[in-house]
Design a protein around this nucleic acid. Structure first.
Length: 150
DNA sequence: GCCAACGTTGGC
DNA sequence: GCCAACGTTGGC
C-alpha cells in the first residue's frame, strides 16, 4: 500500500466536503507529472488531503483511494471548469480516481508545521518552487506526519 | 529544437 | 495584491 499527498483548494473541495459526500471523484488534474502519479495509485492507498491557496495552507485529513485510475471525462465536458479543448474521447490524456473520506485531523497540520518537522526533507511539497498537486509520500514521511497530526 | 513570452500556481 | 517559480506555447 502506498501513500500520497493531494492538494485541493478548500473553497472548491475541502476535507469537510469529502466527509459529507463520503466518497467523490478526484478529477481535474491537468499536469502530466501529477497525472503519472495518479496512474500509480491503487485501491487501498491513502493520501493526505492538503488544503492549498488558503490561510493557512496545510494537511486537513486523510482519504483513501477506492478505484483504479480511469479516464477523466471532465476533460471532454465543455461545461466543466476542467474542460481541456485539446482532449477528445479517443485521445483523453487525463486521469481520475475515486476517493473516500477516512478522517479529518483534530486541527490542521499547517505547511509551517511541516517545515519544522524532521524527516520530511524529501517531500516534494516542501521543495522550493514546487507546484506539484499530486505527489508520493514515503512510509517514513507518513509516520512522521501522522505522529504529529493525529 | 531553442527559447522568449505568457499563463498558472500558490505561499506570503 | 505581489511575485517567484514553473510549465506550456508558439515563432523561428
Amino acid at each position: 500500500m502506498a501513500y500520497w499527498l493531494m492538494k485541493s483548494e478548500p473553497d472548491t473541495f475541502s476535507i469537510s466536503d469529502l466527509a459529507r459526500l463520503e466518497q467523490a471523484p478526484w478529477d481535474g488534474v491537468r499536469n502530466y507529472q501529477a497525472r503519472n502519479f495518479m496512474r500509480e495509485m491503487r485501491p487501498g492507498d491513502e493520501f493526505l488531503f492538503y488544503h492549498s491557496s488558503c490561510q493557512p495552507p496545510g494537511a486537513a485529513g486523510i482519504g483513501r483511494i477506492i478505484s483504479e485510475p480511469y479516464p477523466d471525462h471532465t476533460a471532454i465536458d465543455p461545461d466543466s471548469p476542467y474542460h481541456d479543448p485539446k482532449a477528445t474521447a479517443e485521445k483523453l490524456p487525463w486521469t481520475a480516481v475515486d476517493v473516500a473520506f477516512v478522517k479529518k485531523f483534530p486541527r490542521l497540520l499547517t505547511l509551517s508545521d511541516m517545515r519544522s518537522l524532521n524527516g520530511l526533507e524529501g517531500l516534494a511539497l516542501l521543495q522550493r518552487g514546487s507546484r506539484l498537486s499530486v505527489m508520493p509520500v514515503t512510509d517514513q514521511q507518513w509516520q512522521v506526519l501522522l505522529a504529529v497530526a493525529s
